[in-house]
Write a protein that binds this DNA or RNA. Structure first.
Lengths: 259, 259
DNA sequence: TTATAACATTTGTCTGACAAATAGACTTCA
DNA sequence: TGAAGTCTATTTGTCAGACAAATGTTATAA
């Protein structure tokens, strides 16, 4: 493994180790974790996953066909296919039928993380308010960091996103997309992958919601103004100002969205 | 759907809509998204997922047996099992063999989010340094918020975690676990589910790494002192002080871990 | 009462078959 | 020539049936 940290295994015992020594006789009281017998399909998924994350099968390439994998791995097609469904759920592959079809390797993007988060939040019945609050706290942090680290190319991307917002003041769907692009550009400029992924997930969730309920024309115009101010602050590398402007922008946005 | 936001679908078209009008004749240039034909297994997974997230099958209960599901849904066992593997990967069910076995419903916890994050970071070859930085930025934010909102019960949990740290100064594994517990208690005290999940994931990743490389006895002792200071700041509801102390604690921790 | 054995239930795996989608080669016809 | 349709081979998607393995439950024997 070349990386600095390892992928946690599914196989970990969630059940606490039970004390097996209930007998009165003088038996050993050695405590053992419950033994998790892995399924063949899990082992297959592990092997294939390792192939992918190690880069042996690069992005865009196909895995061998099911027929070949069945031969090479020595399992039945049903077992193999269950493993493929696991990898698919993890966002590591997609499959297509027909010749030249098969399992294509992908590097999962933030959408998988977003999905996991959405699932958790839905189950906890987390109100939108909470997600908005998280964004309001996280994004100023990002803006502050981005002001230090942003590159000319990233500034250019911000300008392009802003331009796109201006050009689509009439079209809610396009405008919302452009605004997301603006925000994502800030996250990328933090040059911190973890922060970028987190804020991207939250941004995607909120954007989906915004696209559903829509935004007034006035809201869009003030949004453009706010983003212009944020851009200027970043251009001047004034992290404090950028953070304050982002927070003000988000607060204004929240009241518009919730009313 | 009772919740305020919807779960994004896997089914979304990742491929951009192609312009089908390459002909010279006067054809319509209507643009259509590529039609994604869902598999039966995906539809089954969707139905069962809806059953779970809607609460129709509560946590801890079992889904019907495969035999029954096959009958009720009218699909083959292979198809059903592929769907079950998807739900399992999402953390929504676990399965056991034997009588009274079957698919038990679980509400996924942060470990799924952690896993998604770990997968992404591993693929991007993100250095540990980046994860540590993210934590150093996020946790002071949490401490600040927690100072406002922490309840007496949560303060008690913090004290218990601190006590556990003190009692396990000799045992690295237990000590690290206790320290994680302390941090998780702070995250919970923010009463913001999104922040809690995010910081928990980062904390779990770093804790796993820490447990692997170990911590010196001296590091543990200073860790206890730092946490005592943080606890006092939270008891006094001094958010600014708590945040500063958390940041100092993490900085010290980082230098110890990386050296 | 306790240990053992038989049983029933449920998931895990395998095999073989056919249906559906689809890229590429081939054919037809203007 | 070229544009359209047709055929074919490949690959995934689904089905049906069978047996193995794990594991609670119940009956049986010491």
């Amino acid at each position: 493994m070349t990386n600095e940290f390892a992928l946690p295994k599914y196989n970990q015992t969630a059940v606490p180790a039970e004390d097996a020594s209930t007998s009165k006789k003088g038996r050993s009281t050695v405590k053992l974790d419950t033994l998790k017998v892995p399924r063949a399909s899990e082992l297959v998924a592990e092997r294939l996953r390792e192939l992918i994350v190690s880069g042996s099968v690069p992005e865009g390439e196909n895995l061998p066909s099911e027929k070949e994998l069945v031969m090479q791995l020595g399992v039945s097609r049903a077992t193999l296919r269950e493993a493929l469904r696991m990898l698919e759920t993890e966002g590591l592959i997609t499959t297509k039928t027909g010749p030249k079809g098969g399992a294509t390797v992908h590097h999962p993007n933030s959408s998988n993380l977003t999905r996991s988060l959405a699932l958790l939040l839905q189950l906890e019945k987390t109100p939108l308010q909470t997600i908005l609050e998280a964004r309001r706290l996280l994004e100023p942090l990002c803006a502050n960091l981005a002001a230090e680290r942003i590159t000319p190319a990233e500034l250019e991307e911000l300008r392009a996103a802003l331009q796109m917002m201006k050009e689509n003041l009439a079209d809610t769907r396009m405008y919302v997309e452009a605004q997301l692009r603006f925000h994502l550009a800030i996250f990328a400029a933090t040059h911190n992958e973890v922060l970028r992924l987190y804020t991207t997930s939250v941004g995607e969730l909120i954007t989906a919601q915004t696209a559903r309920v829509g935004l007034s024309e006035a809201a869009r115009k003030t949004g453009v103004k706010a983003c212009e101010g944020i851009l200027v602050a970043l251009e001047n590398r004034d992290g404090g100002l950028a953070a304050r402007r982002v927070e003000a922008h988000l607060r204004a946005f929240e009241t518009l969205l919730l009313k």
